[in-house]
């Protein structure tokens, strides 16, 4: 037993030494090594809606997103399709690897932000407000092209400080209730918070159709809700803090299949 522990420490030290020798920070370890998708915590009724594309109301957003994909907008007279052609091919896997480090902007960007970067910088069209219906429509359409593919974000190299900032946000107790994200989603998943069965707070189902809101919501809208519930001051959607947090959440969900558009209560 003692010996096994010593060997364990030795192995950990070795990993750390190798990481140092390579000049990178040590590999982060996941609190939940084998994550479970939110679908394991949803009721059969909710899943029945999610699993039938004809019943799932999010497919209205998918249709709107597909229309917008082909619509010419902005001063340069282009649509998304002008540059990216058939989304079914070019957008396959994109949702699974985002948020991602954007080399030119030298920061991590979410799918929402990337869409707006293309609109403002390439199309000469105005940015769409975060969590607005037209933006959620296009991201839901793009996310669908990755359905079933494993979440696989790259946190290495220049992306790492953004990941670290997201991790710090996740683990900071905040609000009047003084809880960290993990107070609910790591320490207490599978337990009830009044009527809510707590999941592991995985992000692989976003954008999601929320029955309570009767609309598709973006991940950061959900995050605002969680911060609000602990009576915390939520940072703005689309801002740096939530972008980094979203990046960290994607890494927590690494390996889970993209399930957007999921359906939640």
């Amino acid at each position: 037993m003692r010996r096994a522990a010593l060997v364990g420490i030795g192995a950990a030290a070795l990993v750390a030494a190798v990481a140092l020798a390579q000049g990178g920070p040590p590999e982060p370890q996941r609190q939940i090594p084998n994550p479970m998708s939110g679908r394991h915590f949803a009721t059969p009724e909710t899943l029945a809606i999610q699993d039938d594309d004809f019943l799932n109301p999010a497919f209205l957003w998918v249709e709107e997103g597909e229309e917008a994909w082909n619509r010419v907008e902005g001063t340069s007279g282009q649509s998304c399709a002008s540059c990216h052609q058939d989304a079914r091919e070019t957008m396959r896997g994109v949702r699974a690897r985002m948020p991602a480090y954007h080399p030119r902007l030298q920061r991590v960007v979410t799918l929402e932000q990337q869409v707006n970067i293309c609109r403002t910088e390439r199309m000469g069209a105005p940015a769409l407000p975060i969590d607005s219906r037209p933006l959620n429509a296009i991201t839901t359409f793009i996310a669908l092209q990755s359905r079933g593919m494993p979440v696989n974000v790259d946190i290495s190299g220049p992306a790492r400080p953004f990941f670290d900032a997201g991790e710090r946000f996740y683990n900071t107790r905040r609000g009047q209730l003084d809880m960290r994200c993990g107070s609910c989603h790591e320490d207490n998943y599978g337990r009830y918070l009044r009527a809510d069965l707590l999941s592991q707070g995985m992000s692989n189902g976003f954008p999601t159709y929320r029955l309570k809101e009767q609309r598709v919501i973006s991940l950061q809208f959900r995050l605002q809700g969680c911060v609000n519930d602990v009576r915390g001051e939520a940072p703005p959607m689309g801002g740096e803090e939530f972008t980094n947090l979203e990046f960290y959440l994607a890494w927590r969900a690494q390996g889970l299949p993209v399930e957007s558009p999921s359906v939640r209560r």
């Binding site: 905040r174 609910c184 939520a234």
Partner: peptide, 19 residues
């Protein structure tokens, strides 16, 4: 503890403005 402190105002982070 994940139980909130019901009679404390110090040492908290980013409390919602109304509280």
């Amino acid at each position: 503890s994940n139980m909130p402190s019901f009679y404390r105002v110090e040492g908290l982070t980013a409390v919602r403005r109304d509280w």
